Simulated scan of single mutants.
Amino acid sequence: MQRVQGPGIRDWNFPRGVASVALMVGFAAEHDVPTARMLRGTGLTEQQLRDPDAQIDAHTELTVIRNLVRARPDLPALGIEVGRRYRITTFGIFGFACVSSPTLGEAIRFALRYLDLSFTFCLPVAEWGEAEFVAWVHDESVPADVRQFLIERDVTAMHQVMSDLLGTHLPLTRAEFHFSAPSYADRIRAVTVVRPRFDMPHNLFAIDSVMLEQPLPQANEHTWAMCLAQCRDLVHRRRARTGIAAEVRARLVPRGGTDGFTAPPGIDTVARDLNMSTRTLRRHLDAAGTSYRALLDEVRRALAEEMLTATPLSVSDVAIRLGYAEASTFIYAFKRWTGGTPAAYRRERAAQR
Rank of each mutant, 00 (worst) to 15 (best):
V69N: 13
V69W: 13
V69D: 13
R70H: 14
R70C: 12
A71T: 02
A71Y: 09
A71P: 15
A71L: 03
R72Q: 15
P73I: 10
P73S: 09
P73D: 10
P73C: 04
D74C: 04
D74W: 09
D74P: 08
L75G: 12
L75C: 10
P76H: 12
A77M: 07
A77Q: 11
A77I: 04
A77K: 05
L78E: 08
L78Q: 08
L78T: 09
L78W: 11
L78N: 05
L78S: 05
G79W: 10
G79K: 06
I80F: 09
I80A: 08
I80E: 02
I80C: 00
E81N: 14
E81M: 11
V82Y: 04
V82S: 13
V82A: 07
G83Y: 11
G83Q: 01
R84L: 15
R84D: 11
R85T: 12
R85E: 14
Y86N: 06
Y86Q: 10
Y86A: 07
Y86H: 13
Y86F: 13
Y86I: 09
R87T: 10
R87V: 02
R87A: 11
T89W: 13
T89D: 15
T89C: 15
T89F: 14
T89P: 15
T90L: 08
T90P: 08
F91Q: 06
G92N: 11
I93H: 13
I93Y: 10
I93G: 06
F94D: 06
F94S: 06
F96Q: 10
F96C: 10
C98A: 11
C98K: 03
C98T: 10
C98V: 01
S100D: 09
S100V: 02
S100Y: 12
S100Q: 11
S100N: 07
S101M: 12
S101G: 05
S101I: 00
S101C: 08
P102C: 03
P102M: 01
P102Y: 01
T103P: 01
T103R: 02
T103E: 01
T103V: 06
L104P: 04
L104K: 01
L104H: 07
L104Y: 03
L104I: 05
G105T: 07
G105I: 00
G105F: 01
E106H: 00
E106D: 00
A107S: 04
A107C: 08
A107Y: 00
I108R: 08
I108M: 10
R109K: 05
R109F: 06
R109I: 03
